[in-house]
Design a binder for these strands. Structure first.
Lengths: 126, 126
DNA sequence: CTGAATATATCGGGAGCCGATATATTCGTG
DNA sequence: CACGAATATATCGGCTCCCGATATATTCAG
């Protein structure tokens, strides 16, 4: 799953939203960090619809402007849940490794630090 | 930052590794979930080097085979840390929203798919 | 000898994101 | 009333990036 798709699904997780609303919602929920472009949105929307992760919920005409609302399917909720756990696991693994790297890399206390073949630099090569 | 770049940086976070070692390490740290391809690796390596997030640490010739070791720069560690926090925040936001959405789901047991007249946004709509 | 694993690298195709562009209405400002 | 900004939809070309295939070379197991 791409980053853009993840954020679209997240924006739709609590309630149905229309395209432009998704754009603003993604920016808000990421605290301004992610600014998805219009050109990105519709491609993502099409792909997610094709994959049955979202569906067209309804269409409204609000003050002369069409609003096309999308919502998550059960499959979409499941996919988002799985992806969120994957990302959390990845982030967790990265943080752990950074912490490990900050110690002396040769010997960490209390760890099963036996990284397989430790090449002893034997041999006159260089 | 792309997913592949993130995993390469993570694999290098605790100690310098060479290309093929990164490939195996990424697969291991992701518990088999991510299987990065060789064609992906070298592009990522070049880009990360160009961005000064990694550097060539050293070259060894082990049993006739060249091993080219890379390691994180300080900038690379900082970038990985920032990305890990970004991912964790995204994952957290997604989970929170999924939980919020479950309070008034469209697909409730015994109910057919109803668009759910949810929050009073747009109010009476007219 | 042959195949698998180790280890490097390149190339073409395709997927996906971005910037620009187009259309249309409403609202605030001048 | 004119104009720009915001709202709201959609498309298209270019570019980046990932993957599969391919190539080369050595070591080890069968």
């Amino acid at each position: 799953m791409t980053q853009a798709a993840f954020f679209v699904l997240t924006a739709l997780a609590d309630q149905p939203r229309h395209g432009y609303g998704i754009l603003r919602e993604v920016e808000e929920l990421s605290e301004g960090a992610v600014q998805m472009r219009v050109g990105t949105l519709y491609g993502v929307l099409d792909r997610l619809t094709a994959d049955a992760l979202i569906v067209l919920d309804r269409e409204e005409v609000q003050q002369g402007r069409l609003r096309r609302y999308y919502r998550l399917t059960d499959e979409g909720t499941a996919a988002l849940t799985a992806e969120a756990e994957r990302l959390a696991a990845g982030a967790s693994a990265a943080k752990k490794r950074i912490a490990e790297g900050r110690r002396s890399p040769a010997s960490a206390p209390g760890t099963t630090d036996k990284p397989a073949t430790r090449p002893g630099l034997a041999g006159g090569l260089a």
